[in-house]
Amino acid sequence: MAVGYMRYGTFQNAGGDETFLEADRAGGKAFVAANRHNQFTPPTGGGVSVGVGGVGQVGTAGWSYGWGVMGSSIADGGLQAGVVGLGNGSANTGVVGEAHTGSAAWGVWGKSNQGYAGWFSGKVHITGGLTKASGGFKIDHPLDPENKYLVHSFVESPDMLNVYSGNVETDGSGEAVVVLPGYFEALNQDFTYQLTCVGQFAQAIIAEEIQDNRFSIKTDKPSVKVSWQVTGVRQDPYAVRNRISPEEEKSEGERGLYLHPEAYDQPRSSDINYERERAHEIIKSDLQKRAAELFEEHDAKK
């Protein structure tokens, strides 16, 4: 393939026509654009050197039976990135991923063997379901924030469970009324109760169950502090249409495979996504090799 260089650049307006470049070469490129200014240093905001720029309703588009667009960064450091999406307009979006065909379609796929497959700095909202192997919160330790983290696990349930709790003191007759949020009965069903007397031995019962978003407690002694907890199962329209099934049969293609084969001392080839990840690694390895060759090729011709 012939390689040409333009030292001073050029401009051409093709009007209503297209400019078409074609190559028919295994492992080759149809078009290469290089901007060598600061090419081996990360962008710092003081004028970014761009290899290829596109202007239009869609600035740059790629169509492929493999990867439509690939971005690869070969430098070390947290600032560098293979692909960056910036939404600079009002109510704009930085990156959009869509995949609508088949249950195994993934709009966005993040992978990391040592770091994080996804890192979100800010609020995250999910309109559909969320499944995970484990979860919790991780914060700077309140007693030693400079040197330690504090990590807690989520509380799990097979039901879409809401938990409410508090403390109340019964009056001189041993009675107390607990008022719940105004939306409680609209949101919840199948209530359960727990009562614990605090500070003295006493008996406590639910005198009247939840009605009109309140319930009453009765103790056998006056002025007893009672710690209470009430749970309810969600009954809002979304929850009713999207109940969680605690046990699911694996599909025909998933049987014999694992989400976490290492937990069962099984080989990586038993991972449900092994074939998909293996194909991804092969393509990625080849493209990274071609990217390295591209740098070497053009460095030799400077």
Rank of each mutant, 00 (worst) to 15 (best):
M1C: 10
M6I: 02
M6S: 10
R7E: 09
T10M: 08
F11K: 09
Q12R: 12
Q12E: 14
G15T: 11
G15S: 09
T19D: 06
A23C: 15
D24R: 14
R25S: 13
R25C: 10
G28C: 03
A30V: 14
F31I: 02
A33T: 11
A34P: 02
N35M: 04
R36K: 10
H37P: 13
N38P: 03
T41M: 09
S49Q: 10
S49P: 03
V50G: 11
G51T: 04
G53H: 01
G54M: 07
V58D: 12
V58F: 09
W63Y: 12
G66M: 06
G66F: 02
V69E: 15
M70R: 14
S73Y: 07
S73C: 12
I74S: 15
A75N: 09
D76W: 02
G78L: 06
G82Q: 09
V83I: 03
L86D: 15
L86G: 13
A91Q: 13
T93G: 10
G94V: 06
V95P: 00
G97C: 11
E98W: 00
H100G: 11
G102D: 11
S103C: 15
A105T: 08
G107V: 00
G107S: 08
V108I: 02
W109K: 12
K111G: 14
S112L: 04
A117M: 04
A117N: 08
G118P: 08
F120P: 12
F120T: 14
K123E: 15
K123D: 15
V124A: 13
L130W: 15
K132N: 15
A133Y: 01
F137Y: 12
I139S: 14
H141K: 05
P145C: 06
E146D: 14
E146M: 13
Y149V: 09
H152L: 11
F154W: 05
F154Y: 09
D159I: 04
L161N: 07
V163G: 13
Y164E: 14
Y164W: 13
Y164D: 14
N167Y: 06
N167K: 04
E169F: 00
D171I: 00
S173A: 10
G174R: 04
A176S: 05
A176C: 07
V178I: 00
G182T: 04
G182I: 00
G182H: 03
E185M: 08
A186R: 07
A186P: 00
Y193N: 05
T196M: 07
V198E: 01
I205H: 05
Q211W: 03
D212P: 02
D212Q: 06
N213L: 07
R214V: 02
I217L: 00
K221I: 01
K221W: 02
S223K: 06
V224S: 02
K225E: 02
S227Y: 00
W228N: 05
W228R: 05
W228D: 10
Q235I: 05
I244C: 04
E247V: 07
E248V: 12
E248T: 15
K250L: 11
G253Q: 05
L257M: 13
L259Q: 13
P261T: 11
P261N: 05
A263F: 06
Y264H: 10
Y264I: 05
D265N: 10
Q266W: 05
P267A: 08
P267W: 13
S269M: 09
S270Q: 12
Y274V: 03
H280A: 14
I282Y: 04
I283H: 02
S285Y: 06
Q288M: 09
K289L: 07
A291C: 01
E297D: 11
H298T: 05
H298Q: 07
